[in-house]
Amino acid sequence: MAAPPRSPARTSWLLSTPALLLLIFGAAGPLLIVLVYAFLEPGEYSGVVWQFTTEAWFRVFFERDIFDGTVSPADAHLTIFWRSLELSVLTTLTTFVIGLPMAWFIATRPANQRAIWLFLITIPFWTNLLIRTFAIMEVIRNQGILNSLLIRLGVISDPIQILYTETAVLIGMAYVYLPLMVLPLFAAIDRFDFRLLEAGYDLYASRWQVLRRIVLPIVRPGIVAGSILVFVPSLGAYVTPRILGGGKNMMIGNFIELQFGQGRNWPLGAALSLILLAIVLIALLIYVRVTTREDSRHG
């Protein structure tokens, strides 16, 4: 016998070293810095003072009155978190309700037309986010396309104020993230066996029952994937709420940015970032749970 071959486990470790290094310096490192900063004192103008404190975490949830030192819950922060969650959930729902028929439509086109439709869906994706957001602004502002059209049609007499409301943020985010919902839905529906629809109707199911009992359960992995892909970036969205929401409708992303800028409170920004990360991780955990259960049931 010749020299024993190198153990496969050791070889694969060696091969994955570059990836590991990238992970350590690219992901774990910055995360560690954020974690450390969240437990330090803010510097006077910016940065941090190397002094351990949990003040940043306290400040996430509570406010201390500057004059008499009384403590009260940080309602403003809770409002921002709540608004972010609400808008992200609504964005996910909106993209789903619009995306499902779109994905269905594309998946039922003849094979040679599908590529064109998919390409059209993804075009906005190749365009700069700022430009797309300003385009939406042009549509919904008071003298914009939508309002002028409605006024000319006589539906309304005065422009509706959409811009700088939560609705504007919702419209913008739904528009921006729609492709992320349509693509996984399309992939799932594309694999769907349409003969099952006839089997459903044959067994006395109504259209609604066929959708709920047959289509949705079978394309569920696509729904979950699309929802995560839309929900996660929505939660951290920054550009769209800033431009379309104006100053009033801040989301977590804007609030974090504020701490690193005008707010000059890096530790608070770091703590907020970690909380955002935690929410995203919980969402991903739910995703993993749901999909693995699905897999084990399909065997």
């Binding site: 003969r195 006839e198 089997a199 109707y201 044959d202 006395y204 109504s206 359960p217």
Partner: peptide
């Protein structure tokens, strides 16, 4: 009448069983 209101059932060539 649509299929879901007819008192007939079909055994499909591909079976078309619900996979889930």
């Amino acid at each position: 009448d649509p299929p879901n209101r007819r008192p007939v059932n079909t055994v499909f060539q591909s079976y078309a069983l619900f996979p889930h």
